[in-house]
Design a protein around this nucleic acid. Structure first.
Length: 121
DNA sequence: AACTTGACGAGGG
DNA sequence: CCCCTCGCCAAGT
């Protein structure tokens, strides 16, 4: 697909993000992998930056380390982390949450037993 | 058309 | 654990 003129390029990302349940998260890389060709973690981040905060639970997309990449932008208080915490996600003192606990996989993309994220806490 | 900039991520030191 | 490099690709200059 030709990303350049495809308005749905962004919509394809939001479509999945809207399905993430409260209190659960997905990573940029995870979304890129599911979307496939033309998408990379970086472009997914770019798309999320322009997300309609009213209709997309943008706060549920974090980086592969379990932290919020918006930390520097919302200084001194990280808005994203705050919202996630209000949804029940617990972050440690370094601003990381346990992906093993909160990572969410869309139907049909559940990980294999042996490749579960082995991260944090 | 060339160059730069990211809400990224894997790999190496 | 921290820091750096490099690949990635849409957008803006």
């Amino acid at each position: 697909m030709n990303p350049a003129n495809d308005k749905n390029y962004r919509e394809r990302v939001y479509e999945i993000v809207r399905k993430i349940p409260p209190g659960r998260v997905m990573t940029y890389g995870q979304l890129a992998e599911i979307l496939g060709e033309g998408y990379t973690p970086r472009t997914v981040g770019y798309v999320m930056h322009g997300a309609d905060t009213e209709n997309v639970p943008w706060q549920r997309v974090i980086n592969s380390q379990g932290g919020c990449s918006t930390a520097k932008m919302t200084m001194p208080v990280n808005l994203q982390q705050g919202i996630l915490e209000s949804e029940g996600v617990v972050f440690n003192e370094k601003g990381k949450c346990a992906l093993v606990t909160y990572l969410w996989f869309p139907e049909g993309y559940e990980p294999e037993e042996d490749q579960q994220p082995s991260l944090l806490e």
